[in-house]
Design a protein around this nucleic acid. Sequence first.
DNA 1: CAGGCCGTGCTTTTT
DNA 2: GCACGGCCTG
Length: 779
Amino acid sequence: MKDIPDQPNGDTGMHRSVPYDGVHQVILRPGVSHSIEFMPASLTPNQQQAVNHIDGPMLVLAGPGSGKTRVITHRLANLLQQGIPPSQILAITFTNKAAREMAERTRQLVGNAPIWIGTFHRFCARLLRERPETAGLQSNYSICDTGDQKVAIREVLHDLGIDAVHFPPARILHRISNAKNDLITAEQFAELHEEAIADHFQAIVAKVYPAYQQLLLSANSVDFDDLLLHVARMLIENEELRADLDERYRYILVDEYQDTNLAQYKIVAAISQLYPNLCASGDPDQSIYGWRGAKIDNILRFEADLPDVKTVRLEENFRSTKRILESADRLIVNNRLRKHKALWTSNSQGDPPELLVFEDGKHEADQIALLLREKYDRGEFKWSDCALFYRVNSLSRELEMALTRHRVPHQIAAGVAFYDRREVKDCLAYLRLISNPLDRAAFLRVINTPARGIGKKSVALLSNWADRIGIGLLDAAHRCREIPDLSKRAVTAISRFAAMMNEFSLASAGSVERLLKLVLEKTNYVTGWEQSESETHQQSLANVLELISVAHDYDEQHPDTRSLEGFLESTSLVSDLDQLDPEAGAVTLMTLHAAKGLEFPVVFVVGVEQGLIPHDRSLQTNEVREIEEERRLLFVGMTRAQRKLYLTRVIERQTRGRRLHVIPSEFLSEVGLPIRDFTNSQPEQQTSEKASRMRNLKKGNGPLLMTGAALLNGTTESARLPTGFTVNMKVRHPTYGLGHVVEVRGFARKGTVDVQFPNQDGVVTFDIARSPLQPVGLS
DNA sequence: CAGGCCGTGCTTTTT
DNA sequence: GCACGGCCTG
């Protein structure tokens, strides 16, 4: 068992995720436990009941902040202590992050044990590697990302003579995804909807889905949903395999059970028949993935599904103040399709949550940043205590810019993720093609990247020919001399490419890192970037170097079992969330969906407006179920807060270039919060001050040099960087004498410094603006 | 044939 | 306000 070395993160500002292969052997940042300061040392009677339960099905209905993870990990520890072999335990989560946390916290309790803890997708990917032939695959199959999926759909549309403008690939994919999650195969779908007269779009999908599936299969590839679909089908159709796994995993735990879809439900059901020791934990009130096929019914009917279910309710909240919890409860009780839950806490009353109202998105972002800056300068919290949530990613941009202006350190889950970067995808495509020569998407990506004179036309000729003969694209490239109409130049270029690909193999390179370096070298992929002054080239280069280091990490963690497939799997099944570091010393920005499972002392839910929460899309369907999911989403956001909760909305919001008058979210009246108005009701003086502040920003006095204090004062003169003091700087004070700076907080006139004097106990804190402190010596 | 430029169209949430 | 697709040019 090996530990991942603690990686310095973020030096380059690049995103980065450490590959994680789901086995309980990974230790990331030991000692990081999410603030459990409210949590008593011992378990409550209810928690203890859940922990002690061993055999038979159990449902743990866990409200927000009720110590669910703690219960689960203690239970895992208990199972081991009762002598159950770790190999018989299977723990499934939805996110890598949850898996990692569960693994880490279990490890803290019982040390390393080879329990398999991982996501549904990873579990299925692994099973599929073991038994690929049952799904018509080879074990070196590739996992397509959404980009590859769209390319594949486009190709299918082209082949079928369907216009991609009227039938957007994204929408088609969404339908296909829904079908797969409902375990409807391409053949079944075609049969069901071929003649869908009422729904023309559905009829098109009925043509596209089978062709798309055929294309994937011929490329020895799967998409995300296939991982589940293939496994579910093989468990249903192959009794021997089912019985085998049923025998193997006798104690199964599924976290966030309210988010399981039909495929996941069937998978779990299939392997928990002989030994129905299935523990499902979750919270129906936090079911927020209905749009992607999750069936809240799965958890609601759990008790009816299995015999003699023991149900444990965890309703005591250890996370939030009374006022926060009450506000969230006032919201969620409006859901009618719901099991009643009585949330309570013995935490303190706390401050009332507030609704902040701003003029527009720009003011909203600016004021939030300012507010954070002020509170931080007053020492009210650490940056990492604070999180901003929003319904749609597009709201993050304005916030991010404002935070940058006010020098508030922040990290974002989303935006352009590391594995979505073009250069990273290119590199991975080379590795994919090496691993799986049939990989169509990878071939098309790299055949002319970097440019080697193989144009669209040549590629089209090659791909048509390959399809006609029935071979993969790389095979066709090897035999390109046989392709009619292909120009001499193209034949030369393609042959060279094919020959080059032949030279790459993990076996001869020895490690993934060396293989990747070899590819970069032979393809001249980064040539020119090193010398380039251009910012984008430098970024691209940094990303490629980062990927090399990811490969290096993978090699180190898998000295004996390393495989290209393993590496590629670990890179394709990660998400942006995985890169977030709770201890980064930065404000965290993310979507409400991404916020589930986390907690922060200070939370802002931004843009609580009709059309955002609830989102337009659910408003248009006008279905109770949809609106209730939106309500749960806000509920999730609100219940992340420990001490301070702010909801915000604006008067006018700019979307897609259009300024639109905003209607407050219908949920706001349900929550009923005190309002703090940042619009015109402000004193005249402040309004004009605000205007002058904006002018200063516009003058281009280098907003980057503006400090929170400078903005507050409406001046730029104090923007002269932070405080003039730095840590370790030698200083002199008239009374205390010589000392050195231990810490600097805040900026300019708002700043304070802590100074240590040799002849003084502890440190002395000074207001920079007022103290006679003088720097000494060189600086 | 490739690369750059310009115009259009689109934007929920994620493994 | 962005990304992508299509068009035009070198």
